[in-house]
Amino acid sequence: MSSAPPPPVTLPPGAESATVAAGCFWGVEHLYRKHFSSRGLLDARVGYIGGDQANPSYRAVCSGGTGHAEATLLVYDPAKLSYRELLEFFYRMHDPTTVDAQGPDRGSQYRSGIFYHSPEQETVAREVTDKVNAQWWKGGVVTEVLPAGRWWDAEAYHQEYLDKNPNGYECPSHYLRKFPELT
């Protein structure tokens, strides 16, 4: 197995990116691919964001000392799939009410976060967060909404991990919750 990171993601013409952190990145990436690959998701990568160490390794991030979150970078076609849809799914597929934790996973690397790439994304992220906080999670949302900053791809063996390892670890808090449509 190679531990070299994959090449940086290059956006195709017209594509946009979204970055979310929702605990262990294997399950997050897997769920997005499963639900959106045929509906406008062009790529999903796992990696690290929000920390202060250059080129962090999985081991360093897991130690909790780098400040990075395990995250998923989504590349999508906005003509087929909206940023709002991606964020509503984000809030359905994990528990955004736990500080630095998802299921049994503990540490700041497992925090809930939306890392926006433009002022427009920030506006949508804050609007969606406010609505889901009021309507779905009853005031308990602790999700960070921050500028994207520097992205670091995780090591190659983490990419599409659950497709390559169908019996691999998947956080028990990663499943699709049923909520009414946001108003």
Rank of each mutant, 00 (worst) to 15 (best):
G168H: 08
L86C: 06
S57M: 02
S173P: 04
G113Q: 05
K80A: 13
P13S: 00
G50P: 00
Y32W: 13
A79R: 13
K80F: 08
V46A: 07
T72F: 00
P7T: 04
S118T: 05
V99Y: 14
N165Y: 03
L182V: 14
V128K: 03
T123G: 00
G113N: 05
A156D: 13
T98G: 05
A15R: 09
I49G: 01
F89G: 07
P147L: 02
L86T: 08
V142Y: 02
Y58M: 02
A148W: 04
R45H: 09
N165C: 00
W151C: 01
Y157W: 12
A18E: 10
K80N: 06
M1F: 13
Y83I: 08
Q121V: 02
E88C: 01
P119K: 06
K178R: 15
V142M: 05
T19G: 05
P13M: 00
S118P: 08
T129Y: 00
P8V: 11
E127D: 12
A21C: 08
P96H: 09
N133Q: 03
P6E: 06
G139F: 09
Y110W: 04
R92Q: 12
Y110C: 02
A4S: 12
A71P: 10
R84I: 02
C171E: 14
A134V: 03
E122G: 03
A134E: 10
S38R: 13
G64K: 08
K138I: 01
A134S: 07
H35W: 14
F36Q: 08
T66K: 05
A156G: 01
Y48L: 08
A148N: 02
V145Y: 09
P56L: 12
L176F: 13
P180I: 15
H30N: 15
G67P: 07
L162H: 11
P5A: 02
H94W: 12
A60L: 14
K138M: 04
T98V: 13
C171D: 15
G140L: 05
V99Q: 06
P7R: 11
D77V: 03
Y161E: 06
S57Y: 00
T72V: 15
P56Y: 12
K164W: 06
